[in-house]
Design a protein around this nucleic acid. Structure first.
Length: 130
RNA sequence: GGAGCGGACUGGAUGGCCGCUGGCCGAGCGUUCGUUUAAGCCGCCAUAUCGGCUUUCAAGAACCUCGACGAGAGGAAAGUCCGGGCACCGCAGGACAUGGUGAUGGGUAACGCCCACCGACCGCGAGGUCAGGGAAAGUGCAACAGAAAGCAAACCGCCUGAGGAUUCAACGCCGGAGCGAUCCGGUCGAAAAUUCUCAGGUAAGGGUGAAACGGUAAGGUAAGAGCUUACCAGCAGGCCGGGCGACCGGUCUGGCUAGGCAAACCCCACCCGGUGCAAGGUCAAACAGGAAGCAGCUCGCCGCCGAAGGACCGCGUUCCUUCCGGCGCGUGCGGGGCGCGGUCCGUGCCCUUAUCGACUUCCGGGUGGACCGCUUGAGGCGGCGAGCAAUCGCCGUCCUAGAGAAAUGGCCAUUAACCCCGUGGGUCUUCCCCAGGGUACGGAACCCGGCUUAUAGGUCCGCUCCAAGC
RNA sequence: CGGGGUGUGGCGCAGCCUGGCUAGCGCGUCUGGUUUGGGACCAGAAAGUCGCAGGUUCAAAUCCUGUCACCCCGA
């Protein structure tokens, strides 16, 4: 917690496309908050729940159930989504908590998530704005 | 060359860019913490000391940022089927229940695992599969078929004896018909056959069935039967030999048979306290809850006792009041309800009899957070030795993932090996060559030893059978 | 991490404990009848490796072992 307070300026880290732990959702309360807001967007690949977090950066949470497949398939999904979040975080809206849920069983190509995730995040932002 | 059996190993490589986790080293004007050096101010003034504050100096710790270095999923990490380590709880000890295991000997921390060996079955063989004993303790089960499914009985049959009935050829006799051959009827006796009843013997034979109280042969008998004999199979006991032992081989004797199922209940021997790293420990918070109210002061309410006053002149009684005093305040016995641990034993919570809060201090379950537990271990590799082996001993050497909404990755390039696919091409039939495509199962969650299951392929070793040649 | 349950025609279930009987019931499907036709009704029929693999037994859906898949519960 102290790290965020002491280093609020993460512009340099964004330039380096880092994925630090503070950009992740790690608490049950954060997930509950995102789900209770009941604001979601989806396409054929992903389902995203969103909620404003009041921070100068977005945060990512993953929810990959056993229906997706075995541990190998679930790990593959989580790594792809994390990679997509890492590469596209500069294009993301600021101050959103995103809970990302895969919809299909077969993990897609990285480029598909790379295209899908920012689009869904912007739709979440527009729904939360008014 | 073909078919097959057993075992061991392996589970792609190189490079580029961008990331993640933890380790170590270095740097930093970063933040915090306490220590230290010096100065100033404050505690009426001065000095010394002490305390506090500000600035400063130095080194340090934790965190953060940056940089460098080296490390980072498996043979099954899986399923969670066994066994342990470790941790906490419980325990004087135990009984019962439940559960598990089951030839023998060994290995091991331990095991339901492993090794060796014994037995049964399967296979031409290399080899594979299975498993305790008890049905000559008890209770039970066996559909259908069959006389009968467990105890020996006796439905048919076979045989003997007694009694009865029936049938009948020939012969004899009598009577009748006929000229006669002959025919018809009756009758006696003997033999025979069939059948019934009763009494007895017997279990050789009987469609069945998974299974029917040894098999074959000879004798024997009224008929038969281990009734007797020989051989074979099997049982029990003794002796001899081998083996630590399970057991094996041989021999003698006995009696002639004692069926199957205990992965049906059960009997016998052995094992087992519970919970599991979300174990458990440390730290700081907030909120319930519990305990104590003491040393200078507790307060309110309730109950009881006392005191004072009043209703009533005195005493007594009853009732009411109180900036009055003391005691008690949730304990104990009993009852009820709901639970927990396998049961006994025991125990938790709530309610009732019957009736508490505020405040202070202390304790503090559970929850969420941080840290520890957390990876050096029944450890890996190599050598030597013991042992048939599993395994063990000694010596040397190495340190090799530690996450926590959960790291060990993403994109790309080149490439090895084998096989497959089927498209195109090359003398498209095989073979061969080139280009193209595909190539597994599966992700550490406290740690080990096993088991089981999944698995593209590849490498190696030992062995068996068949065929051909020499 | 610990505990429990289920798997049987296309669907939902019974049978399993205590082994043997034609593996049964409802819905559905098909055929025929009835009706002008349909529904309803009547009659008949088809369809089941009892999740899989071993074992015990004369005999296994049932008993035992292993295994696969799915579901539920507690922390």
């Amino acid at each position: 917690m102290s790290r965020k307070i002491l280093h609020p300026d993460c512009a340099e880290a964004v330039e380096h496309r880092r994925l630090l732990p503070e950009y992740r959702l790690r608490r049950d309360a954060d997930f509950k908050r995102a789900y209770d807001r009941r604001c979601s967007a989806s396409d054929g690949i992903l389902l995203v729940f969103g909620e404003a977090n009041g921070l100068p950066h977005p945060r990512l949470g993953l929810s990959v159930s056993r229906k997706v497949g075995n541990a190998i398939a679930r790990n593959r999904w989580k790594r792809l989504i994390r990679e997509a979040f890492r590469l596209t975080r500069a294009k993301m809206p600021i101050g959103l908590d995103l809970v990302v849920i895969p919809r299909s069983k077969e993990p897609p190509e990285l480029s598909a998530i790379l295209e899908s995730l920012p689009r869904l995040a912007r739709r979440i932002e527009q729904k939360l704005r008014p």
